[in-house]
Design a protein around this nucleic acid. Structure first.
Lengths: 237, 237
DNA sequence: CGCTGTTTTGACTTCCCTCAAGCATGGTGG
DNA sequence: CCACCATGCTTGAGGGAAGTCAAAACAGCG
C-alpha cells in the first residue's frame, strides 16, 4: 500500500491502473521497519537499492568532521530516498529516521525495469527527482540568505505544503516530530537560537507548535514572513 | 568540439567511439555565444532544451524578493546546465554567465533519443546528474555549517578539483573569474566580509588570488582548512 | 518515581553585517 | 594622451544577530 507515493506521483501526472500496480508490486516486495533515530544508509556505503519511505519521517544529513552536522532535507511519506544513486560507488550522505518509519527496499534492476516498461512512470519518477533537486537548491538559499526567523518559517511552510500534497494535513495542523536540535541542524543555527526564534514566531501568532504538532493559523502570513515562493515544489496539477 | 564534456564524462566511464560521436553531434548543432553577465535561462521560463557549457564560467542563482541573491552552484566547461529539467513546466532558478561563454543548445527529444540509443552514454549522463545533486548538497553543508574562512576555502578547493578533472589547471594555478561580490552571493556572506576573509586566507599563505587567477601553494593545507572531503565529487576513475 | 531527552532561560562573547568612504583598475571618448 | 567613469577591491568604525556555556525547568516513559 504505497499510498503516499502514489498520491505524490499523481501530483504530477495521472497514473494508469497498470502503472499503479507496478508501483504496488515494487514497493510491496521488501518492507523494513526502522525505529526512530536509526540510520537507513550511511555515507560511504555502496548503494544497491532504491528506498521508498512508506510512512514516518526521515532526513538526509552529513557529518562535518569535529561533530558538526547538517541536515540536507526532510523525507516525508512517499519520498524516494535514493533515486538512481545506485550508479555511484559510494553514498555521499546518510539517511536517518526521525520517527519510527517503514521503508520499502527495491532492487535497482527491478526498479529500472519497471520504468523501462512504462514511459509514463519513468516520467513521473524523473519529475520526483527533479523536485528533490529543486528542494535542495531552495534549501541552499534558505540557509544562505534568510534570517533565523525566515529560515524556520520557510521550513515550516515547505513541510506543511508537502504534507498537504499527500493528504497529511488536517485543517491547519500537521504532525511535526522534529526536535529543536534537528531544526537547528536543518537551518544551520544552534538549538538555543532556534528556541528563541520559535518563541518569536509563537509570539507573533504565526505558528503553534507543541506535542509534536504544528498549527499554522494564517498560512498566508507565515508564507510572507518566510518570503516563500512555491515555484520550486512544482505542484503542477 | 565538446572536449570538456567528454573529459568530464570520462571521469566516470570510458566512452566508445560511437558514443563520442553522438556527443559531438548533439553539441555541435546549435552553439550560442553569450557575453559575460548575461542570463542563459531565467526563473519561470519553460525549459525546452538541454544546455551544455562549452567554455567559460556560469552559475545558477535565485533572487529572493527584496534584492538578496543566492548563487546555487558554479558551472564549469563541460557542465550540463539543465539535465532533464524539460520535464518541468517552469524553471525554478536562473543561469547567468560569469565570463563570456559558449553553450550548445540541444533539443530535448534529440538528447533523449541519443541516450536511448546508448545505455553507456545514458549512465554517464545520469552520473553527471548525480554529481550535480551531490554538489548541491555539499553546498548546503558549506553554507550551513562552516565559518567564513572555511566556506571560501571549500569553494576554492571544489572549483580547483573540478577544473583539474577537466584539465583546466596548470601547476597549482587556475583561472578564477568570480568577483568578491559573487563569492559573497555563493557562500551567503557580504562582500565586505568576503574581502576580509580573503585577506586572512592570503595572510595564512593558503591562497594567492589576483588578476582573475587562483594559485593554491599547498592544496593539502587548504583542504584541511576547508574541512574538505571529496567523496561528493565522485571522481571514481 | 527517577531516569533520559528536550525545551527554556540567563549572561556573556564573537562573528559577521551595515554604512561609508577611499583606492585601485581599466576601458571610453573627447 | 589624458580626463572621466564604472567596476571591483580595500579599509574603518560601530551595531546587531547569532553563538557559547551553563543551569534550570519540563516533559515522557519504563
Amino acid at each position: 500500500m504505497p499510498i503516499y507515493l502514489l498520491r505524490k506521483l499523481e501530483n504530477f501526472v495521472e497514473l494508469s491502473l497498470p502503472d499503479r500496480e507496478r508501483v504496488w508490486r515494487l514497493t510491496d516486495m521488501d518492507v523494513r521497519q526502522l525505529k526512530s533515530h536509526q540510520d537507513l544508509v550511511r555515507t560511504g556505503e555502496c548503494p544497491r537499492f532504491v528506498h521508498v519511505l512508506l510512512d514516518g519521517w526521515a532526513f538526509r544529513y552529513v557529518d562535518i568532521e569535529d561533530g558538526r552536522r547538517q541536515i540536507l532535507g526532510i523525507l516525508l511519506p512517499g519520498d524516494v530516498c535514493d533515486l538512481s544513486s545506485f550508479i555511484l560507488k559510494r553514498l555521499d550522505h546518510s539517511i536517518a529516521t526521525c520517527t519510527a518509519a517503514r521503508f520499502s527496499r527495491i532492487p535497482a534492476d527491478l526498479f529500472m525495469q519497471s520504468l523501462a516498461e512504462s514511459p509514463n512512470l519513468d516520467r513521473a519518477f524523473r519529475w520526483a527527482g527533479l523536485v528533490e533537486q529543486a528542494m535542495a537548491r531552495a534549501w541552499i538559499s534558505n540557509v544562505g540568505q534568510r534570517s533565523a526567523i525566515e529560515r524556520l518559517a520557510h521550513l515550516f511552510v515547505e513541510l506543511f505544503l508537502r504534507l498537504d500534497s499527500i493528504g497529511l494535513v488536517s485543517g491547519n495542523s500537521c504532525e511535526f516530530p522534529l526536535t529543536q536540535e534537528q531544526l537547528a541542524e536543518a537551518v544551520g543555527m544552534t538549538n538555543v537560537h532556534v528556541n528563541r526564534s520559535l518563541m518569536e514566531l509563537r509570539a507573533a501568532g504565526l505558528i503553534v507548535l507543541n506535542n509534536r504538532t504544528l498549527t499554522i493559523p494564517d498560512l498566508a502570513a507565515l508564507r510572507s514572513a518566510a518570503l516563500f515562493d512555491d515555484i520550486y515544489l512544482h505542484l503542477e496539477r
